[in-house]
Every structure is written in C-alpha cells, then in structure tokens.
Design a protein around this nucleic acid. Sequence first.
DNA 1: GTGAAAGCGCTAACAT
DNA 2: ATGTTAGCGCTTTCAC
Lengths: 339, 339
Amino acid sequence: MPKRVTIAEVAELAGVHKATVSRALNETTEHQVNAATVKKVQRAAKQLGYIPNIMARGLRTSLSMTVGVIVPDLTNPLFPPIQRGIENYLAPRGYTALLANTDGRDSLERAAFNSLLERRVDGFILATGQVDHPLLKDAYERDIRIVLVNRGTTGVPYPLVTGDDANGIAAAVDHLIELGHRRILHVAGPRNFTTTLTRANAFTAACAEHGIEPRTVVASALNVDAGRHEMDAILASGEPVPTAIIASNDLLALGIMRSLRTHGLDCPADISIVGFNDMPFAQDFQPPLTTVRVPHLELGSEAARLLLASISAESQNPVTVTLPVSLIVRESTAPPRNP
Amino acid sequence: MPKRVTIAEVAELAGVHKATVSRALNETTEHQVNAATVKKVQRAAKQLGYIPNIMARGLRTSLSMTVGVIVPDLTNPLFPPIQRGIENYLAPRGYTALLANTDGRDSLERAAFNSLLERRVDGFILATGQVDHPLLKDAYERDIRIVLVNRGTTGVPYPLVTGDDANGIAAAVDHLIELGHRRILHVAGPRNFTTTLTRANAFTAACAEHGIEPRTVVASALNVDAGRHEMDAILASGEPVPTAIIASNDLLALGIMRSLRTHGLDCPADISIVGFNDMPFAQDFQPPLTTVRVPHLELGSEAARLLLASISAESQNPVTVTLPVSLIVRESTAPPRNP
DNA sequence: GTGAAAGCGCTAACAT
DNA sequence: ATGTTAGCGCTTTCAC
C-alpha cells in the first residue's frame, strides 16, 4: 500500500501544530479552534489527501469504533438482513462491523471471538445464542459488552433482541385450526436454542388452548437436510400422517417440502406446511410458503442500537426487545383433504 | 470494555523485558529467544489472559491484517458464498474482512471505500465492478491493492476472478436448442456490468453458431422486479412470444417466472427459462430452475488468495482467473409445445 | 539471548 | 485559541 499522509505533514503545510490539526479535524473539538484556522487546516488536509489513521486514534482513545458480529453461517438467508440492519445503524455513527462465521462450531466461535478481541472491538453482536453458551459467562464477568440477536441464552443477563416467537407460533396454529386441521405436527429445532424451545413450548400451549394433541418431533439441526430427514422418518414410521406441519424455521419447512415431493405427496393437498422467518424467496418456493415473518432488518438495527448504548453506558443493562411478527399466508396451507 | 493486559505486565510477571515478550510471542521471532524463556513468557501471558493489541502492532508495522470487502448488497444470495470463500481463505492466515454494502450507489461506495481506508485495510476485494468504475482509476494510481471478483472493469488492469460467463451461456443455448427451441430470448442485465455484457455477447455468438436469431432485451437492473417488469412488457408488446428465455441471472429469471404466473402462463410448458448463478434455493423455486452454476465460494477464496499475493508483492500483477461453470438442468426447461 | 530506546500516528492534559 | 508534552501498546533497530 502507498505511503500515507500523516497529521504532521498537514500541520506543516497549514503552518500550525499537529494538535491543532487534530482539533480542527475532529467534530467534537472543532469549535475549540478559530474558524479561519479550521478552514486552513481543512484545505491543507484535502490538498494532501490526508486520511486519518483510525488505528492510531484507537490506540490513544482505546476505542476501536468497531464491533464484532458473529453469526453461525452467513449463507443462511436469515443473517444477511440482520447484518444489513446492523450496518445501517452503525455506519452513520462511524462504526464498522467485523463479521465472523462459526458454522455452529464452538471452537470456531472461540477463535473468532479471540480474533475480534485482538482487534479490540468495542463490543459484540452474537446471533449464535444457545442455552448455556460456552463463552458468555466468562465474557460477562470480564465486562465485555454483548447484545444477543434472534437467539437468547440462559444464565447470563445480556440484552436480547428477538422476534415474538410465541405469538408467531400461536398465529400459525390458529390459522391451521381455522382451515380445519386437527392433526398438526411441530417439527422443532434442536433443544439448545432458546428460539426453537420457545416455539416448541408455544406450540404445545396453543394446541392445549384448542384442545388438540400437540405432536412434536425434534430435528437435529435447523437446515434443509434435517427437515428432509425428519419428514422421511415420519413417513417411514407408519404412524398416522399429520394433515399439517409447523416447522421451526423455513429451512426445515423446505426440507419437508423436498421430502414430500420425493414421496409423491402434494403440499398443500396432502399436507399443509407453515414455516418460520419468511426468508427471502420463500414466496418463490414450490408452493409459495406460508410462514411467520420476522423483521430481520429491524432485529439487526435494534441490536446495534442496544450495543452502542451499552458501550457508552457505565454498567450493563439487561433489556429484552421483542419485535412483532406476522403470519404471511401463501399457498402451502389449505384445508385438509380428509379432516 | 474491561481494562486490558498489556505486554508490559506480562514482562513484569515473567521477569523479562517487554521486547523479549514480544519476540517470544511472535511466531517469526520466537526462535531468537531461549526456549525456557519462551515457556516462561507463554505461561505468564496465559495466566494474565493477555491478548495482543492488533491495532498497536499495526501502528508499528503499518499492516492492519485487514481487508475491505465491498459488495452491492449482501442480501443478494450471490454474495454470502463469496464472502464465506473470502473468509475461509483469510481467517487461517490471520486476516479479517471488513464488509461494506453499497446498494449500487456510487456515493455509498465512495464512503465505504474511505471509511475502510481510514481503518488502513491492506487491500480490497470489490464485487461492485462496472464498466468505467469511478473509483478504480484513482485507486490504481495510488497503488492501492484491489482484486475484483465476479464483475470486472475496463481501463484499469486490476486482477479479476470470475466465472466462465461465455461458456455458461453457450451451454444454456446448446441445451435449449437440443430441446428443440428456436425462438430464444435473452433478458440481459444493464450494459455497465462486464458480466452481463459478456453474457449478452456470448448469447449472440451462440445463436449465430446455431443459425437462429439472437433476440435480446436489456433489463434495468439485476433483480426480481426488473425481471418481472421486463417480462410484463414483452407479453404486453404483442410481439411473438419466445419459447425459451435465458436470463442474465437467477433473480431476473425469478422475476420472469413471477410474471408468467401472473399472466397464467406455465413454465416450462409455455416458456422455458434458464437462469445464471445457481443461487441458493434455485432448486426449490416453482418450478426448480435450470441454471448455470457458478462456484461462488471458490470465486471468493481465489480472490482472497490473489489479494494477499498482491499485498505482499512489490508491484501489481494483472491476472484474470476464470473458473469453470456448469449447466444444472432442472424443471424450468422442456421441449417447446409448438416447435 | 536479552535489554534499552525509539517511534508508528494520534489525542488529551497541561501550559501559555 | 494554540503550542508543548506525554503516552496509548507494540515492534524493531542497536547495544551488550
């Protein structure tokens, strides 16, 4: 990379001391210096193509103006909107996000966490929440500022921004009941995520309210393969096939749809399916997926807002922000053939 | 954030000078120091929970171990795999990526570029290439290291990593011809992207080879809305409807499929469609999309490889890496009803 | 093999 | 309103 212009060169050209340059170029201290001098300095800076060195500043202020964002897998369509939301909030405030993927592996998460710590991030946004998260207890004791997004944790009072999982599931159940379904199956996600746990519990509660039996199976992961595998197993089990399925997320729903196709079953004629998240292109699936829309962009920007607040606060303040969700009815749900 | 352990504290605990600590903890200088001392220092570092401050190191070495990645929109499913590929290559080498979105706006791109420059990134990977890119000429003159991915540019000899667009389109045309199609339309992307330009030219060439007329329309953007709008216009025009369409990317193809559904037309019975990219979930569309698969993960890791090579090289070396693509035949293509 | 000292580019306290 | 000085945490000569 090219040799860079420093504050000293600007100072020399402008004929002032470098401290004055620093003051003149900094929003918060600009008023401390004569307006004419400010002009002079700005002109000199522009002429030389001066670009402040944030690292040097950070070393001095012990603020990196940088936050670490840790997600399981950016390729999961859930996360890009969250990341965009985070960036939308951070960028205008001079902050930059450092993004790391963990592929759900604790070792990679630990590595990412340390790597970001080395870069002196001012805080973290974690989308990798799980029950009994291995890193969080230690981080909390070290007073590292973190905001959880989408998934929460247990035992540590970090702020959390999440969609209203319980209401989303309740809406899905209501919708299926209204269509006439009675044999509804919930394909839950792994029990170590608070989201999937909340959704599973909400399913049981909603079924109780409607007086139907809450049948639930637990998938081994929150991805397409797990969904297909689970549906294959259900169809092979010989047990009575449900007339409708609520999946814990869209990816599972997608896997279930693929399994159905493989077995010559039609959705929604044979089985109705409801997903969760309303991921991008859910409307383009075969058939277009009925699902619960979660405002992911807002999840991200809200998390970023909470994190910056936490960073500048004296002590940590455990808040939980729950954003409203809405059921999006498309073509994957219909009245049961034999109610 | 918590107060951090510095190299001085480690030095004190280990009973050595901080320069020795630095040497002991650094891979490349570790051999310069007595093995026993290394052990002692490492134990002290571990005990105190020492985490090196990369910013301070960067200030000293004028290397940030950081690269800027600029994409139009992370929400476009094309980019997450590229980003993952980049990260996969960088992380084991101690580098971190700083990601910025531009939404295709030059002003945002310029802002992102400057913000990353302030953070002293060692180089850039740009996925926002366009013909006559506004930033690149200036950047090249300043000897800023950049690698372009997916889309190229004109006039500036920066390295480029791209899929084999020409062969991909040729394969698509061959496939449609084999199915019996003769009235094939290409829905191209904006003319200011080298990818879409290459694809459009390849389409014309392939048609010439088969002796059929190359009909092409140019969409205003590379997204779903533009695709739908373009298809709506074609259907409204009253001109003869093609029996097959090759879209410049999957998003356009998706928009075309949505338009068809709106107009009561069936794909592939009425019109066959081929996309480009094989974006995630293309197989789950209605119908599953025949498309050209581009190895996006490899695009990313290859770009990262080239960038690190460029960073450590004395001078820039313009190379173009073209990765092979393959046609994935699914259900959106079939023989024409009335050949 | 290790210590001493300087300095990367910046900002903050103090002085004028 | 501006200059002086010191130092953030690290690496890198140069001594010894």
